[in-house]
Write a protein that binds this DNA or RNA. Structure first.
Lengths: 249, 249
DNA sequence: CGTGTTTTTGACTTCAGTCAATTAAAGTGG
DNA sequence: CCACTTTAATTGACTGAAGTCAAAAACACG
């Protein structure tokens, strides 16, 4: 049933700000087509003018910038359930790249349809606004993470954030999850080199805070990891859990 | 005339997204009281629940976080003309501090009044949304700045950003402006130590890119500074210049 | 089973941090 | 306007966390 595809989006937004049945119906009725992307595919590249935004049905993506010396910085992570690049559509052009971290199943929604949705339904606009404000809070925490924490704290912080966000997305319990990135990509998130990420991850492992098998992260001591990473989840501004979350557990 | 106080806010928002005369009138008619703050005063502290938001009539403020080892990271700068902490009101509590960098003249606007304004006038909500999206774009650029650029580039980038933003705020020409921060505060913006900021600023000065007198920054070679800082102003997403900007030059 | 990533390890370098002292500037009250 | 105090900027010598380079081991996959 095509109506079911965008239902998680409606639920997510309703968790931010109240939506009446008409609002929710308008969201799930947005025109969309489901597409599949393999790891590494670009959703948008710097300088392009997007025509669609993407609802991530399954899989994760990162938003990154290339700096002048050739380095790369990942400036945001989009997990299952997030709406990618709607905000960028409010601005003129994209000045960032968005790339699939895993294989991704996404619903492409034409920007025009979203534009008329928010014009007709202020409550939806409001909910999208609150979603954007919560995302901006994550950006600010990342500035602090990359600017003022040492490598051990930076990585511990990232591991905690992913644990909480993946759980909130209904993907996994907090203590065990699949890391959606290589160590090189992790390095581009936290502003370190891949070599140093590797060494620091094994420090955390040798301290007994985490265990790693393949790319699975198991958090053995949540309190200690949280403390090591100076992690307080309030900045994530997670909405109250919505019905759809339980179904996916 | 009290109506004139919030006129720059209306003009700024109208520059983001079209507002009809009724919208603009509603903005300038918001209840407000003008207050003065001296350097260092806190507008909001971590954990407080704000009751007002602040329109900066004159002066600048910073938004900062304290990390566990006692370090501080400035995660955002608010210059003359910006609306502080309206967004935070959409979330539950503030998890950041906002502090005056200079002496500040600000209009306190009760959050309740803004809440009913955006409920009644979707166009204003839309404009505030776009303002927030542009601000978020700055946060992402800062993540890249702090995460992947060396000290020289970081500082050059900040100097460029301030030059452009202060000019956009109608405060000064691009090539000469008043730095609203001490070197210690600059260090907290770019994630370095005050000592290293000092040394790096004089490197930029000795290279002939800038000149400093008191806290005035004069940019002697705009192209070179822009290149040194890997600075491309598009991420600022400045609106088209509005009438009120010319008056202040 | 070979091929191309990704992860891991070691030796060495460097950029930025630390600690501590000095100089300059900005207030402040008499 | 000048002593006095405080804050901010500057400088030097030394340290250290993270980067670099390069190679080996482990893994993923057709």
């Amino acid at each position: 049933v095509p109506e079911l595809i965008l239902e998680p989006l409606a639920a997510r937004l309703a968790g931010r700000s109240p939506l009446d049945p008409g609002d929710r119906q308008a969201i799930v009725s947005l025109p969309h087509s489901v597409k599949f992307f393999r790891t590494g595919t670009y959703f948008i590249r710097q300088g392009q003018q997007p025509s669609h935004c993407w609802f991530l049905i399954q899989g994760s993506a990162c938003r990154h910038k290339i700096v002048v010396n050739g380095g790369r910085q990942i400036v945001g992570l989009h997990l299952t359930g997030s709406l990618v690049d709607f905000q960028a559509s409010l601005l003129r052009v994209a000045d960032e790249n968005v790339q699939a971290l895993t294989s991704v199943q996404a619903a492409a929604v034409p920007l025009g349809a979203v534009a008329s949705l928010i014009e007709q339904r202020p409550a939806v606009l409001r909910a999208l606004f609150e979603d954007a404000v919560a995302e901006a809070s994550i950006f600010r925490e990342w500035i602090a993470n990359v600017g003022r924490r040492d490598s051990r704290a930076r990585l511990a912080h990232l591991l905690c954030e992913l644990a909480v966000r993946q759980q909130a997305a209904g993907l996994s319990p907090t203590c065990l999850y699949q890391m959606p990135m290589t160590q090189e990509q992790i390095a581009d998130v936290v502003g370190l080199t891949p070599v140093h990420v590797n060494r620091t991850l094994r420090v955390l492992e040798s301290e007994g805070l985490i265990r790693r098998v393949r790319r699975q992260i198991e958090i053995l001591d949540w309190n200690a990891l949280q403390q090591a990473g100076d992690f307080q989840p309030s900045y994530l501004h997670l909405p109250e859990p919505q019905p759809y979350l339980q179904t996916a557990a």
